[in-house]
């Protein structure tokens, strides 16, 4: 038994080391964000910078806050709109029976296969046609559409596991279907729906390709701004690092928030 315990202790140490190695690149960028221009180019490198030096963060926020605002507004609004449309749809697809329902579900899922690069040109022309190029509204509408297949499919997987008897009881008590959804189903599936919301949020927050094409000045999102940090003759590494850390704040916080449901979220409910 003593040897089994020692094996486990060694495995624990191994897991700890692996985790540290895996996090090292992120940590290194975080450390870089606190360095001055001169310190960036020092060899041997400075391992521990002065954490009270916040000029890089200040410079990024001062220089790029409108684009951060764009990202926040577009991400939050598209998440809300997406859930508003997806939840009733998933509810209907789970509970109501009709001819061709399974085919409709598969079609919803197949929309997920659309590579952004294939949608980019048509969406660009469409948005130009209706005058929504480079606007919050245009980006919100598009991100909502991109997230719908995932959101509907995921919400369905959570709705399916809700007990039917409770829903029927509510119907007998005189609730209409909207009341059943809002008062019974949504509270029951709240945890699952939060997961859906988080993944929808992250997609919009992290998206680059569509934003690269469809925004110019007014609605340019933060990831597009981030691309301008690379490929310049003189890369401003310290600001790049600070901007990266700012961009990473929501994903990191949300990871801890949904850690239980990450597997379900990443596989659209196929693995739980």
């Amino acid at each position: 038994m003593a040897s089994a315990r020692r094996t486990r202790f060694l495995l624990y140490i191994a897991a700890l080391v692996l985790t540290l190695v895996n996090l090292a690149p992120i940590v290194w960028i975080a450390l870089t964000a606190f360095k001055t221009r001169v310190q960036i180019y020092q060899i041997p490198p400075i391992w521990i910078p002065d954490f009270t030096y916040l000029d890089n963060f200040a410079a990024v926020i001062q220089g790029y806050w409108p684009f951060l605002l764009n990202s926040v507004v577009i991400t939050l609004c598209s998440t809300a709109l997406c859930l508003l449309i997806a939840i009733p749809c998933a509810f209907g697809l789970t509970l109501f029976t009709f001819k061709g329902r399974e085919d409709l579900k598969m079609w919803v899922l197949s929309n997920r296969m659309m590579p952004p690069i294939a949608a980019a040109v048509p969406l660009y022309l469409a948005m130009r046609g209706v005058g929504l190029l480079d606007t919050w509204t245009g980006m919100i509408l598009i991100y909502t559409g991109f997230n719908l297949p995932f959101a509907i499919w995921m919400a369905m997987s959570f709705f399916r596991s809700a007990p039917v008897e409770v829903l029927e009881a509510a119907r007998i008590d005189g609730c209409n279907w909207l009341q059943v959804l809002v008062k019974v189903m949504v509270p029951m599936a709240a945890g699952g729906l939060m997961t859906v919301a988080v993944f929808v949020f992250l997609f919009a927050w992290n998206e680059l390709l569509i934003a690269l094409f469809l925004t110019n000045r007014n609605a340019r999102t933060f990831p597009v701004i981030l691309t301008s940090f690379s490929g310049q003759a003189q890369t401003v590494w310290e600001q790049m690092a600070a901007a990266s850390i700012i961009q990473l704040v929501p994903p990191v916080i949300l990871t801890f928030f949904v850690q239980r449901h990450i597997v379900a979220g990443m596989t659209m409910g196929a693995v739980k």
Binding site: N22, L23, P25, I26, L202, W205, N206, L208, P223, L226, T227, Q247, L248, P251, V252, L254, T255, M266
Partner: peptide, 8 residues
């Protein structure tokens, strides 16, 4: 955590 990092 790496899999939650923005690809950019």
């Amino acid at each position: 955590l790496p899999m939650m990092v923005t690809p950019v």
